[in-house]
């Protein structure tokens, strides 16, 4: 089999599937966004042009949710990557060997495997200011009770903490797996030069795993933009709209209470455009930084 045959045999089926699965829903969503389709009413569906899009930018809740989504993504991606890859992975990689290492890896994956909705309910109980265990421990230090989920200023961070808890361990596990593939010689060469541990990581080990790691980073970013379930269970977007991300708001407008499919679709299209722009910027920036 020549290169060309190999290329065609594998690329064509895959891309046919992807184009169908991606463009059909996407084009549909765009099509809906130009209409006034509302699940709640049986009036005939009409085209309204860009009306939904114009309405979006006068909708204070939409603008608020944009801000919350951005904040949420920055916090959860930043901290999970920092804790996971920056602190936990080197710690385990250097200090745990053999089966202890496998056990660590294994345990790190567990938080991500929990059914998220169920786990979120449990966190809700643990966060409770009157009967929760976290405030119970804090009371030993004379702190609290703290209204983790009910104070508009902390709620977003409290929910984000759970997401970070779940993801930083997973990211750590994946980073450790990536680190295993680094040839021993590179590390040994670095150690001989008398480099400090963190320098070794900063200048020798991390650069090697940066490209695969960036891929994970992007996926985590995608996932952050859609971590709907935790917020839905823990605060339902509240207090008020303090934790209402774009995803929550689009759900509420589209399939949730309001049933305005077209409006929610236009919101999603705007979200898509913003994501593409942001990711392109981040992508270019990272590529340049890496070079």
């Amino acid at each position: 089999m020549t290169r060309k045959q190999f290329f065609l045999v594998f690329m064509i089926p895959t891309f046919i599937i992807l184009f169908f699965l991606a463009f059909y829903p996407l084009l549909n969503a765009f099509y809906y966004s130009l209409q006034n389709w509302d699940l709640r009413s049986s009036r005939p569906i009409r085209f309204v042009g860009l009306k939904n899009y114009i309405q979006l930018f006068t909708d204070a809740r939409f603008l608020n949710s944009l801000r919350i989504s951005l904040l949420w993504s920055v916090i959860t991606v930043g901290f999970s990557v920092f804790f996971g890859a920056g602190l936990l992975a080197p710690l385990i990689n250097d200090n745990a060997k053999g089966s202890f290492r496998t056990i660590c890896l294994f345990i790190f994956i567990i938080p991500a495997l929990l059914p998220r909705v169920g786990a979120a309910y449990m966190w809700r109980l643990m966060y409770s200011s009157s009967i929760g265990i976290i405030n119970y421990f804090l009371s030993f230090f004379g702190i609290g009770p703290i209204g983790f989920l009910e104070n508009p200023s902390y709620a977003l961070y409290s929910v984000a903490a759970i997401d970070i808890w779940q993801w930083s361990f997973l990211i750590a596990a994946l980073t450790i797996i990536l680190l295993q593939d680094i040839p021993k010689e590179i590390i040994e060469a670095g150690s001989l030069d008398g480099a400090k541990r963190w320098q070794l990581y900063r200048f020798i080990i991390f650069p090697v795993i940066v490209p695969p790691f960036l891929s994970i980073f992007f996926i985590k970013m995608m996932e952050s933009l859609r971590s709907f379930d935790f917020i839905f269970v823990l605060t339902a977007g509240g207090p008020g709209v303090a934790t209402e991300t774009l995803d929550m708001y689009a759900y509420w407008q589209g399939i949730g209470s309001a049933g305005r499919v077209s409006y929610a679709s236009s919101m999603s299209i705007v979200m898509l455009v913003i994501t593409i722009i942001l990711i392109t910027i981040v992508w270019r920036g990272l590529v340049r930084w890496h070079e």
Partner: peptide, 29 residues
């Protein structure tokens, strides 16, 4: 491994498939 035209664009397209908010694609599906 194989260099071809528009490789970088296609790669970005693949990533962009994941940008779509589920709320938007769920209903068409």
């Amino acid at each position: 491994r194989i260099k071809f035209k528009r490789s970088a664009d296609l790669r970005f397209f693949i990533l962009s498939l994941r940008f779509m908010p589920p709320v938007a694609v769920a209903l068409p599906f």
